[in-house]
Amino acid sequence: MNIKMDRTETGLLLALPLLILIAFVLPKWVVNYVQVSLGTGLVALGVMIQMRAGLVSFGQGLYFCVGGYAAGMLAKFLGISDLFLLLAAGILAALIVAGIAGFLLRRYREIFFAMLTLAISMILFGLLSSTEELGSTDGFNLPSATYLGWAPEGETGRLTLYTFTALVVVVCAILLNRFLKSPVGYINEAIRENEVRVEYLGTSAHHAVHITYVLAAVVSSIGGVLWALALGHVDPEMTNWTTSGQFVFISILSGTGNIAAPLIGTFLLEILRVYAVEISPNTWQMILGSVMLLTILYLPKGLWSLLTTRKSTKPSDDSADKISVGD
């Protein structure tokens, strides 16, 4: 793999120590929000990389939940609490589910893709809600994470998990940034624009969509494991449509222009929600809805577009319209 880093990757690496430092500086409640945001931010990243291919997943909560429950079940039934094994379980479960579901979903686009992803996530919601062994709608608790036999407790345990979460999220974000610039990532942009042409160029759009879907699922499941460990609890709400809707909300709010955008967007949404609830406890959703509406109206490419300058793409003048035929 090419180790040369671009600005986004350098920025993410520079942000890592700062991210870790705030755990020691900022109030505990803010750090908790950051930690939760990092977990859900990975799911938003999963939504974002699919959006780059023109696919909107209204069921990304499925893999958030698959990751959380896979880790939770490993802990609950086998007594395993090692972070690395829990992450591996979440990734494996997501690979299996997305690998199979991808064969169906890669054939669909636009609203059909959105509705099918939603339908599959709601099937899991129904299954988990009616499974007493997994706590039904209440879910179940997870133990504190251990690290290759080391079991930190109290404040040390909290800080260790936070540090690992920050590290994993930054590594995932860097890898996804590389994916977006890779041939498959590049083909995704082409699929969004014109799938017929992609096939005529000699590659399978279905294949690229399948790969992207599985990758998004894996990242979301990692988010699910980290989120579940941070809260020490999983429940079927993780795969409910309202949760999936939040991830789409974040992607629209933040935009798909940069891999860092959904991570920042997730944190902004958490903060927005906190203040919305404080300002208007019974109608806080209206505030969120209004923000969404204003974003779509005035920043259709999301908050990240405020940081980027649009390249000048002047329409051709008469002289440019002429095709040169001589030397």
Binding site: R178, F179, S182, P183, V184, G185, I187, V198, I211
Partner: peptide
Amino acid sequence: VAQQTRPVLFRPA
């Protein structure tokens, strides 16, 4: 696309 013979995920295109 023309030069891709197998899916490449993390190398710049």
